[in-house]
Structures are given as structure tokens and as C-alpha cells.
Design a protein around this nucleic acid. Structure first.
Lengths: 335, 335
DNA sequence: TATATTTACTTAAACGATTACGTAAATTTT
DNA sequence: AAAATTTACGTAATCGTTTAAGTAAATATA
């Protein structure tokens, strides 16, 4: 085989023009079936695939989307990516991955670098360490964007979320029904609507049951791992809560570790419940009651929404997609 | 701002030629510092970024690599991706993700679709359900490829693996030292060198200690989840092994579940040990002894190797990079 | 002072596809 | 049978870069 195979080569071998080859490959009505067949056959024989750079340049379509997330090494996000990738594959799209490590500057830098036509659209779950919706308000004007799970409200685009408030309310109620009166809250994503909704579900459920939320029972997530363990231990020593409601998976290991270190029995001394997509939750000791978000389906839905925009189909559909999480009751809440 | 900002626009506004702008942006020696500064300043002011399709087309460089793996929703692979992404970011590269779902046909289809200049190189961990090294032998001739963890041997390219044989030998020896005489093997990746090496480490350690490997003590992994649980239960009923050596993480949940269902105590009745990158291993009941591969570092190293090829630096370095796994002894092996 | 070299640009041809526009032949319409 | 239309192609411009080749002016060399 001499040289790369491109439409010029196909045209030469078939003794027809480049334009005809291009149109034949794109199944244009201008080309006769006979010619199309000749082109298709040779293209297959020579294993021709169009040069993406050339088509992108000319057509302004990349068949590529970007996924911008805090971190892939996370049960929720890796499942979401799986869901996204599945849909992208169905539409013949390629998927670029960017990790922000919860840094909004990174976020901006990535999205800015994608505005020059590298991708047709962006799927993102925003970073938690700074409120940043101004930036997104401008971004959605420049490129199709779908936000999932960690979203900013009142943005003019599709958003896929879960029923954070309701499920938190339900979970808190479950703890109360199990007899808990002093439920500590392990607070994550406090800069984001998702985190706030979870917290509101918790406080409203307390109120609805005649309990008062208390500042001293709240532990905020710190990025340094050891700190969370220390905080939780301190919480136990100072307040002796009878339950921990963890709003993010990252608190599970420090929470269990604290109980082990302080020789607290779960669920007798303290009940534990957490948002989580950890597959081993039921094998923990004791098995962990979880709020499990449909991470894969969230990815699926978010990708579908993006393709609605890209294919200009269903743009008038409801743009706030809300999926249901499930409360899976296990031994750690013991009732 | 009228219209998109490209080098033509910059050239017009500065009253210089397109070529000068291009060269200035690329910091060419042909351009005076004065002109460069003018160009850089305006480029920054107008938020110019080069059109990737155009540069790709002309320069045949995409600044993009592909990662082809069985599945992202997996502790090992998501950590590896994290490691890869980190290095790619340092080099200013973009990362495309493709999931094969262990299907070699998918693998071929993805790699074939990447041979037309969409990416500069490929990082991959091959699928387990079919032996397929012929294909890779041809592939590595066409595009820079680095294989990690699940590799084929004797391929003419960089490979990043772990000390599967040695660590399996060590782990098996640990079980024997804990008094086990009837160690069952939960066999994964049996089509691949990594899986075979793990198995060999196991059998050789048995032999070294005067024990015979037995066919009846081997359970092969099945993609359908329930089947593995059934198989392991059957194994317990038929053979009463005193230990399970699991060569892949996917066996952990069925193994623990089987013990729960059959009311077997770990580690008294049976000791369990598994390859795993599960962060909650130490919170299982009882905490799980693991062989933990340095997944993040594998991703790191693999990416570095790819950039050695792409930047033509260090191509003469050792092309078989072998990293060390660690055996973390916990309660499930109880000694 | 004449010649050679260096500096700092410009012109124009690529890269490989898509597509507006032109056109000869075949077919249909009047 | 002449005119109009349709079919099936070809020509050439274009997308936004990069880069080989050309060039005038400035500087260095002989």
C-alpha cells in the first residue's frame, strides 16, 4: 500500500473526481447507486476512514464531547462516565475526559480550551470549592452544556439531578424512626445546590419531628483525609451523637474508623447512614445503610440531553431532569 | 466582537501577514521580539486559541491520546485513568476514553477508528475474553501504543505491569503460613499473561510448600454476577477449602456473600485474600487482606512511556516496566 | 566599496475534507 | 421536435492553520 488512503487516493483509483467520492461516501442523492457502490467497495477494501481533522475543519462538527468532572476515581463519577460513554457510543461520538480536582480555575481553563471547536458539547459536574455560576451563565451561551448532579440553578440549559431534598428528608426520618434524637450531619458540597438540598432535607425532617438542628452537630468536609477522621472523633467526644448522616461517600471511611477507634458499636451506640455508590456497602461491618444515586442513569440521561441539543431534537423538552435515589436500609441503622 | 477570532483576524488588526502571526504564536526565531509581543498581547486580549482541527490537519499532531480499557467503573481502572490524566495534563494533551466491556471486537473497532490521525497514541489494557495478540502485533507498527497491566508479551512496544507472579507467590505463602492446606483459587483473566502469572505464583507457592494444586479447587470467573456466587457456594459444599485466593476484585462480593449465606466464619473457617484496589477493604467484616496494585502509578508510568515515544526521548529505555504490588495483611487471613 | 550574510518579514502552497456552483447528457414535458 | 427539467457528475473555493520558498532591508565581511 503506497501512502495514506484518503479521498484523493480513492478518486484516482476510480478515475472520478474528489467531489464525487466525498458525496458518494456521504450517500448524497447527487451520486448514482452504481458509483456509490464502486466508492464504498474500494473504501472498504482500502480500509478508508475520513481524516477527522479535515472534516472537523470544514464542517465545524467534531463528533466529540467533553466530560469535565472533579475526579474519575470515585464510584459516582466513574459510573456516570460509564453511562455517558454508552450513549456517546450509540451516537458515534468520542468522549474526552478532564478532571478538575475540585478546582474552579481548572474548570475554567478546561472549558476555555474547548471553545475553539475541539468539541461539540460539554457534560459537566461542577467543582465544589467555590461558587461559580456567573462563569457558567456565560459559558452556556457559547457552547452546548449539560450539567449533571452538581449543577447551578437557573442556568439556561439542561440539568440532570436527583431528588436530594426528598431522599435526605426520607433518610433522616428513617433515623428518627429508629429512635435517634441527636443526628449529626457530615456536610459535603456545601457550596452547591445539591449539598444545600441534602442539608435542607435533613433539617426539615428534624423540624417535622420536633427536633432542632444544632450547629455543633455539623461537620464540614475537608479535603485532607486525616482531618475528617479527627473532626468526627472530636464530634463523638464533645457531643455523643446517636447517628451520623453523611451527605457524601468520602465520610464513610473516617466515620467507620472513628467508631472503631472509639470502640463505639454501630448501630447500638451510633447509627450511620450515607450517600454512597460503594458496591461493598453491604459488606461493611455492619452493612451500611445508603442513599444510592442512580449514577449510571444520570450519565445516561445527561448524555441524552446533550444529544437533544446537538441534534436539535427535543429542545423543548423539560430541561430539569430529576431522577430518584433509593434509600437502602441495612444494619448500620439497625431497624 | 465581530466573528470568530483566528490568526487571519489577528493579522488584519495588526496589519501584518498571517504567516507572521502564526510564527509569532509559535515563538519562531524568524520573528522579532517586538512583533511577537504585539501578537501575544492581542491574542490574549481577544482570547485567541488556535483551531485544533486546522493545526491537526496541517501538522499531523493532535495533542490527544486515547485510553482504551475494559471499563471505567472499576477501582483499578479509574485510578489508572487518574494517573494517566495527570501526566497528559502536564504535557498539555487531551485524553479520549473508550470502554471495551471486555469485548475484543470493540477493541479492534476502537483502535481502527483511531488510525486516521484522531490521536497521537494509545494507552490500553486489553480485554480478557479472547486471546488477541496477532492484532496488536500489527497495531503497534501503525501507531504508538503502550500497554498496561493487561498486556500481551513479546510485543514491540512499552509495557507497564506489576509483579503478579511474585506477589501471588508471597500471598499464597502467607496463607500457608497461616495454616491453610486447601487453598481454593478464584481464577480471573485466565486468557492473559497477568492472570496466568498470578495463577503460576499460586501453584508454585503450593509446590514449594509440599502442596498440590487441585483442579477441583479452581473457580473460573463468569461475567454473570450471580453465577460466581453459586460457583463459590458449590465449591464450599463440595470441597470445604480453608482459604480463598481471589485473583480479581470482582470475586470479593460473591466470596463474602457465600460465607455469609453458608454461615462460615472468616478467618476461622476460611481465610480470604484478594487482589483489590477497593478503598473500603479494611472496613469489610472482617477486614480484607489484599494484594493492592499501584493503579495510579501504573497509569502514571504508562503515560510517561507513551510520551517517551511521542517526544522521541528515552525510546531506548527499558520497555518492560514492572511495578511492585503490596500485600496488605488484615483480619480475613487472621494471622 | 562591493559582496555575503543575517534579520524580519511576505507570498503562496499545502493538509483532507465539504459544498456551492457549473455543465453535459439523459430524460421528461409541452 | 423544441424546451424544460432532472441526473450525475466535475471545478474550484473554502475551513484555519503551518511552512517552504522568496525578498527587501539591515548588518557583517572581505
Amino acid at each position: 500500500m503506497s501512502g495514506e488512503v484518503n479521498i484523493k487516493r480513492l478518486a484516482q483509483e476510480l478515475n472520478i473526481s474528489i467531489a464525487t467520492v466525498s458525496k458518494a461516501l456521504n450517500d448524497s442523492y447527487e451520486i448514482s447507486l452504481k458509483t456509490k457502490t464502486r466508492v464504498w467497495t474500494l473504501a472498504k477494501a482500502l480500509n478508508y476512514t475520513p481524516n477527522p481533522a479535515a472534516s472537523n475543519l470544514r464542517s465545524n462538527k467534531t463528533k466529540t464531547i467533553a466530560v469535565i468532572i472533579p475526579c474519575v476515581a470515585n464510584n459516582f463519577f466513574s459510573l456516570a462516565i460509564k453511562g455517558i460513554e454508552e450513549i456517546a457510543r450509540q451516537y458515534g461520538y468520542h468522549v474526552l475526559i478532564y478532571q478538575t480536582h475540585e478546582d474552579t480555575e481548572m474548570e475554567k481553563s478546561f472549558t476555555n480550551s474547548l471553545l475553539n471547536g475541539r468539541v461539540d458539547g460539554i457534560l459537566t459536574s461542577v467543582s465544589s470549592n467555590e461558587y461559580n455560576d456567573e462563569y457558567y451563565r456565560e459559558l452556556v451561551k457559547k457552547i452546548p452544556v449539560v450539567l449533571f448532579d452538581r449543577v447551578y440553578e437557573s442556568l439556561d440549559t439542561f440539568k440532570v439531578t436527583t431528588d436530594d431534598y426528598q431522599i435526605s428528608f426520607e433518610a433522616t426520618t428513617h433515623l428518627i424512626e429508629c429512635g435517634c434524637k441527636k443526628i449529626a450531619y457530615l456536610y459535603g458540597l456545601d457550596q452547591l445546590p445539591a449539598g444545600r438540598a441534602r442539608f435542607m432535607g435533613y433539617t426539615d425532617a428534624l423540624h417535622a419531628n420536633g427536633l432542632e438542628p444544632r450547629e455543633e452537630l455539623i461537620v464540614k468536609y475537608q479535603p485532607e483525609e486525616e482531618v475528617n477522621l479527627k473532626q468526627i472523633k472530636q464530634l463523638f467526644q464533645d457531643q455523643q451523637p446517636d447517628a451520623l448522616f453523611s451527605s457524601i461517600e468520602e465520610f464513610i471511611i473516617p466515620a467507620y474508623s472513628a467508631c472503631i477507634d472509639l470502640k463505639l458499636n454501630i448501630p447500638e451506640d451510633v447509627k450511620i447512614l450515607s450517600f454512597s455508590n460503594m458496591s461493598s456497602a453491604r459488606l461493611l461491618h455492619p452493612s451500611l445503610t445508603t442513599i444510592t444515586q442512580p449514577a449510571f442513569e444520570i450519565g445516561n440521561e445527561a448524555a441524552k440531553c446533550l444529544f437533544k441539543i446537538l441534534n436539535k431534537k427535543g429542545i423543548d423538552d423539560e430541561r430539569d431532569v430529576v431522577l430518584k435515589s433509593v434509600l437502602i436500609k441495612r444494619a448500620s441503622t439497625g431497624c
